[in-house]
Design a protein around this nucleic acid. Structure first.
Length: 788
DNA sequence: AATACCTCGTTTTTT
DNA sequence: ACGAGGTATT
């Protein structure tokens, strides 16, 4: 008798699910080939047929959303408890969880704060503004933006390189006299840039930038460590360190499954290897054609690397597509096949051919957007209740292109939802409140201090804060600590009377810290915080749109209370292996330090932002606040309280659309400079991005472009993307012979509608409703065209 | 003298 | 939305 989890699988899928657990497996799965189904079924199979304990399975997804999705799917085949025990999440989230517990093993504090990309960038920005470096760069007439510096650092980290590695490479390739010994000992950026000026006299620009970047990297790392903070890359780097140096921490792992493997970077690969170190059981799912994160240091080569490292690796291809019509697949393949270096693969349509994708050019961006909105309305009307606005996706190359479409849809009265636009946790009001809480949990975290020390405005400007930082630096204390002492009169006040102004700030933090140490949940902490600093009044006074911002604050409280409720239900446990020490006693995490410290104001007071190197390995308890902060930092939610009852057209980026599908997909702005993006370094990756976008469509696909478009207030003439024109010929002389596309949208005849309904596995078109809807639409068109 | 408030230009893709 | 840059206000 076949088990439920094997029902409805095709031959290849079945082979993948039943593949022996101990033989490493690569599942090369084209879009729409049922990879998620295979992955979940394989997990179920491991648990039910091979008696693998759910708690010893590690399933890595690309986003937290994908993890939730997988949990839901597994919930239909396994018990709630079994699903909970599976260690599932992104590489980042998994690492964060383990690092919380075993922070001391890698020499960091368990109350580390996750530093988001924004704050990382600000840290780099500050370093670049330091006068000696600024002058040095100016003297070499080199411009180095914080963005480029940041991405260089991030790329190094993603490869697992340290500042020392970079400097070593630099010294061995540069022609200047090596100062290797000296700089290694003292730490690279102890050299002043005046010094460098003399040293680097003979270097070319690239070498200088390399050197500066390595120095910035070193300085940046020190800053993060001083702030007891890990950035996104650090979560992975320290994760590798944790599992690499402490094999026992990973012994629970019997099987690792990695989704979207083509988008993993070197460090993530090492992490996978580390997790699989003892069992050697690895299952990965990936598709080289869908590799679109090279800009984030993803390496498709990991597929080959895995075959080398796990010599017995076997491959299974999933080439049957269950998502799209034949003509959509034909267009998609025609686009991606232009990549000359691509390994030939195919996609077999299981659905009928369907209407041809539409390729249409409009005179302007405005015309394009409103035509798309119109077409959406026409389709919904013609499908007689089979299609709703929920079934339409607008996939854009980047977020800022969405403006035109948002307003066009608004004009047409079509509701939209923006997926992954400005993220919820990026909003100022949310970030302000989070910063307060971060400071409560980790007093050393400077970005949070800088953000809220004068929010609401307390009359503390740049000068006062700068001085505070200088004093803190001199004393080796955190600025918060200095502020606290000034307030308590245990330290002389700084010129502009800081003492008087900072009172409510210090008191608020004290109250919150006390509550948090008593185990108060994040929701109650936020509520208390709002009272303490009068945040609502502050919003009303300073923000025009304070009402919607206050809604976001309430939403944050909701999120926090949800977390309080299902803490321990949503996330897995980490069982303590018998590390050498007692795992139940826990370390003082530094939260009470302020009450008991007796330090000499003039002496070199020591801050314990770092645990003692010699401290025995102990594990830290997860406080509700800490769990909340971590979830917030790793979340990508938009926080939009979606009224589920109201269907909306989704507007999102091609990147964010990965793994999603819609019955109808529009890909607008398919133009040179956008596909590929003018800034893109890897043209083939951009081509694959368009391929990924096309393959999101189930029934209907539209590519549109405009011959002119407003950009930065200027009218610019645009050409059709070469990714498309190479197939069709340029729009002026489009070749009919290669008619993969149609220039006009499908008429939506009964036949076409029936085909569409069958592709979507939906019940047939209601002809009565169709007639009614179409009639209504016509009236509307007449009214809006001639009436207004 | 420090801080507050205003305007401007900039913004690929995301854990 | 956030800096940089200016001017007005404390």
């Amino acid at each position: 008798m076949a088990s439920a989890h094997l029902v409805g699988l095709n031959q290849a899928q079945l082979r993948a699910v039943e593949h022996p657990p101990h033989i490493p497996l690569q599942i090369l799965a084209g879009p729409g080939s049922g990879k998620t189904k295979v992955l979940t079924s394989r997990i179920v199979h491991l648990v039910t047929r091979h008696a693998v304990s759910p708690s010893s399975i590690c399933a890595v997804t690309f986003t937290n959303k994908a993890a939730m999705e997988m949990r839901t799917r597994l919930g239909k085949m396994l018990t709630k408890e079994q699903v909970r025990q599976i260690k599932m999440g992104t590489f980042h989230a998994l690492c964060a969880q383990f690092l919380r517990k075993y922070a001391t093993l890698v020499g960091i504090g368990g109350n580390f704060t996750v530093c988001d990309a924004d704050e990382s960038k600000k840290i780099i920005g500050k370093m670049l503004k330091e006068s000696d470096l600024k002058e040095f760069l100016k003297s070499c007439s080199i411009t180095l933006s914080e963005g480029t510096a940041m991405s260089r650092i991030s790329q190094s980290k993603a490869k697992g390189l340290t500042p020392h590695d970079l400097l070593d490479t630099w010294h061995s390739t540069s022609h200047t006299a090596p100062r290797k010994g000296k700089s290694k000992e003292k730490g690279p950026s102890l050299l002043t840039y005046e010094h460098l000026n003399a040293e680097l006299g003979t270097c070319n620009t690239k070498q200088i930038i390399d050197y500066v970047a390595a120095n910035l990297f070193a300085q940046y790392e020190r800053t993060l460590r001083d702030n007891n903070s890990l950035d996104f890359d650090d979560l992975l780097v320290y994760g590798v360190k944790l599992f690499g140096e402490n094999p026992k921490v990973g012994t629970w792992c019997e099987h690792v499954l990695v989704d979207e493997f083509q988008d993993t970077n070197s460090v993530q690969y090492e992490l996978m290897r580390g997790l699989a170190a003892s069992s050697r059981c690895v299952t990965i799912v990936g598709d080289p054609d869908q590799s679109i994160y090279g800009w984030r240091s993803a390496e498709v080569e990991n597929l080959a690397k895995m075959r080398r490292d796990f010599a017995t690796t076997q491959q299974i291809m999933l080439e049957d597509n269950y998502r799209s019509t034949g003509s959509i697949l034909a267009v998609s393949l025609a686009i991606v096949a232009q990549d000359k270096a691509r390994i030939k693969k195919t996609l077999n349509a299981t659905h009928p051919q369907g209407p041809k994708p539409t390729l249409h050019c409009f005179p302007s961006d405005q015309a394009e957007a409103s035509a798309v909105a119109h077409e959406v309305k026409r389709l919904v009307a013609h499908m007689g209740g089979v299609l709703s606005f929920d079934d339409v996706g607008i996939l854009l190359r980047y977020n800022s292109l969405s403006r035109v479409f948002e307003s066009a849809f608004r004009k047409e009265g079509v509701p939209t939802r923006i997926l992954g636009g400005q993220r919820f946790f990026e909003r100022v009001e949310v970030k302000d409140l989070l910063a307060y809480l971060q400071l409560v949990d980790n007093p050393a975290y400077l970005p949070a201090f800088g953000r809220v020390v004068n929010v609401p405005a307390r009359g503390l400007g740049q000068k006062s804060i700068q001085e505070l930082l200088v004093v803190a630096g001199k004393k080796g204390m955190s600025p918060l600590e200095v502020a606290e002492r000034i307030y308590e009169g245990r330290m002389p006040d700084i010129k502009p009377p800081v003492k008087r102004k900072i009172g409510d700030f210090i008191l608020s933090l004290k109250v919150l810290r006390k509550l948090a140490s008593e185990g108060a949940g994040p929701a109650s902490l936020i509520r208390r915080l709002l009272e303490l600093v009068q945040y609502e009044t502050y919003l009303q006074k300073t923000q025009e749109d304070w009402e919607s911002r206050w809604e976001n604050v309430k939403e944050l409280i909701n999120f926090a209370s949800e977390m309080e409720d299902d803490l321990g239900v949503r996330s897995f446990d980490i069982e303590s292996p018998d590390l050498d020490k007692g795992e139940d006693d826990w370390v003082d995490n530094g939260e009470d330090e302020y009450d008991e410290e007796e330090l000499d104001d003039l002496g070199f007071a020591e801050v314990k932002t770092r645990p003692e190197e010699s401290a025995p390995a102990k594990t830290e308890p997860e406080t509700p606040l800490r769990a909340f902060l971590q979830a917030s930092m790793l979340s990508t939610d938009t926080g939009q309280t979606d009224e589920k009852d109201k269907p909306k057209v989704t507007i999102t980026t091609c990147h964010a659309a990965k793994g999603l599908e819609w019955p109808v997909v529009f890909i607008p702005v398919v133009e040179e400079g956008v596909f590929p993006s003018a800034r893109a370094e890897d043209k083939e990756e951009e081509r694959r991005l368009l391929y990924v976008a096309c393959t999101r469509a189930q029934g209907l696909l539209y590519l549109t472009h405009a011959s002119s478009r407003m950009m930065n207030g200027e009218k610019v003439f645009k050409k059709l993307s070469e990714f498309v024109s190479v197939i069709t010929g340029p729009s002026e002389v489009r070749r009919a012979s290669l008619a993969l596309f149609s220039e006009s949208p499908p008429e939506m005849t009964y036949g076409q509608c029936r085909t569409l309904a069958s592709v979507l596995h939906r019940t047939a078109v209601d002809s009565e409703q169709r007639t009614k809807d179409v009639a209504e639409l016509c009236v509307l068109v007449v009214v809006t065209t001639y009436g207004g």
